[in-house]
């Protein structure tokens, strides 16, 4: 790959992997319907499961901008599916930083890729952003809207501004672990087949 700029072929690859990642997110999101507290475990599930396509993605393009574009796409999809625009800056910034980190290792060094994926996983926290950032007004809205106080207390017991930092840290840690798992999976399956 002599050409440093992204080509049409790369854009198509980015689109495919974004779709894959989003399907995984959506599948995990369905689990959240079972019990609201499972929603908190997104930070563990999505980094681990998403690592497999992402690690393949890292080996596929190896050009600057690939993760940035992916994060922009994720931000757009999140907005379209009603998750709001509050998380968009977080998603795009984490994508950009992840891109820079991976770029420093020329998209080859496993350490850089690990950290880069860890940073990229911050986008998952954008799921909680509307709830966490606007917690106070959201709570008031719920009470105004006629929800019982007990329900609100239950809902907000787990959510406060301290939680978001814990969630971010968890994202990063499980992103790094997921990177290991994902690399192992890619090695096991794709390198043998000559795809990676």
């Amino acid at each position: 790959m002599n050409n440093k700029k992204l080509q049409a072929k790369d854009f198509i690859t980015i689109g495919i992997f974004t779709a894959l990642l989003f399907v995984i997110e959506f599948a995990c999101g369905m689990l959240g319907f079972i019990h609201p507290y499972i929603v908190a475990s997104y930070v563990i599930l999505i980094p681990l499961l998403g690592a497999v396509p992402m690690m393949l993605f890292y080996t596929k393009i190896e050009k600057f901008g690939m993760i940035t574009i992916m994060s922009v796409l994720i931000a757009i999809i999140m907005f379209v599916t009603g998750m709001g625009y509050l998380g968009a800056p977080l998603i795009i910034i984490s994508g950009l930083v992840a891109d820079i980190i991976a770029g420093m290792g020329r998209y080859k060094k496993s350490k850089n890729i690990m950290f880069s994926y860890g940073v990229f996983c911050f986008w998952i926290c954008a799921n909680y952003f509307p709830v966490v950032v606007t917690a106070d007004s959201y709570r008031k809205n719920l009470l105004d809207g006629g929800y019982s106080k007990q329900y609100c207390d239950n809902l907000f017991r787990a959510i406060n501004s301290k939680t978001i930092s814990v969630l971010l840290a968890l994202c990063f840690v499980f992103g790094c672990i997921g990177a290991f798992v994902g690399r192992a999976a890619v090695k096991k399956h794709f390198e043998k087949a000559g795809i990676a």
């Binding site: 992204l6 198509i12 980015i14 779709a19 574009i69 992916m70 796409l73």
Partner: peptide, 18 residues
């Protein structure tokens, strides 16, 4: 920009395929 257009179009097309 082309990058976003093409990638988004692929994403749209790809959900049914997946």
């Amino acid at each position: 920009p082309d990058g976003i257009t093409i990638s988004l179009a692929v994403v749209m097309r790809f959900f049914p395929t997946i």
